[in-house]
């Protein structure tokens, strides 16, 4: 028996919005510590890694490890039927070929359930090594989304250059070029508005705007985003989900052939 309940459907709606741009389908691996999802986009350039810890749910029970392959488009149709303040419960029997989403209104007067067929997905699993990154940037998630959106008008690629002075985002193309520099915050009044840089070595890396813009669909989940970078390795873009886990995106850099 698997059962996971959240008091507000908003969190699950936001999580789904954060991943469905990149993934058509994905396997939710459930065990007694929580729910994990790891999947690459179709072009194998980026990877989504989602963790929802058991202790972050209002109720969580998972008697046997369970892998639930879901079509995220179908899941989105179902989640659209939930009000933001509904309680949402996911339920599945051991070895089931369906999952049930149950929504309960706050006054308990409306209860809906939606049964969705599960899929057998044959997905590659990547081993992601622990890495000490040369630069870690923490900045407002809204600001990062804005920068990705603005600069993607000027080119397909975004260059991120991180030094001890700050972080610079650049793009260039037919129109011309654009640069946005963010200095490290000197005095932090509001932590969620701060730009914090931990730098061991300066880093300059180039990434496809298209994927970065997809990652920013996670912005509603949290105030701050963390970018972890080292020369010639994938970028990690992490959004923490309050009290329950995180979504991390890995993006392979563009490289000189």
């Amino acid at each position: 028996m698997f059962e996971a309940r959240l008091s507000s459907a908003t969190t699950l709606k936001k999580v789904l919005d954060a991943i469905k741009d990149l993934l058509n389908e994905a396997t939710f691996d459930c065990n007694d510590s929580g729910i994990q999802l790891q999947a690459m986009d179709n072009s194998h350039v980026s990877l989504v890694s989602l963790t929802l810890r058991a202790d972050g749910f209002d109720k969580y029970r998972c008697d046997r490890n369970l892998s639930m392959g879901m079509n995220l488009g179908s899941m989105a149709k179902i989640m659209k039927c939930a009000n933001n303040d509904d309680t949402v419960t996911m339920k599945a029997q051991d070895n089931a070929d369906t999952v049930v989403f149950m929504f309960e209104s706050q006054n308990q007067e409306k209860v809906s359930d939606y049964e969705m067929k599960l899929m057998n997905l044959d997905q590659e699993h990547l081993g992601i090594p622990e890495t000490d990154y040369a630069c870690i940037v923490r900045m407002p998630a809204m600001e990062f989304a804005r920068i990705c959106r603005d600069l993607s008008q000027f080119g397909e690629s975004l260059v991120i250059c991180c030094t001890k002075e700050g972080v610079k985002f650049s793009a260039s193309g037919d129109v011309g070029s654009a640069n946005i520099k963010l200095a490290q915050t000197t005095s932090v009044d509001k932590e969620e508005e701060a730009v914090i840089i931990e730098m061991q070595e300066p880093v300059t890396l180039t990434f496809a705007c298209r994927y970065l813009n997809s990652f920013t669909k996670a912005t509603p989940l949290t105030n701050q985003v963390q970018l972890s970078m080292s020369m010639d390795v994938p970028l990690v873009v992490e959004y923490r989900i309050q009290d329950i886990g995180h979504v991390r995106y890995y993006l392979a850099p563009k490289i000189e052939d």
Binding site: S46, L47, L126, G127, T206, A252, K254
Partner: peptide
């Protein structure tokens, strides 16, 4: 020439 790398180049596949 600048090209897009794939993740497999960096992470082992299981």
């Amino acid at each position: 020439e600048v090209t897009q790398a794939e993740l497999r180049k960096y992470f082992p596949v299981f």
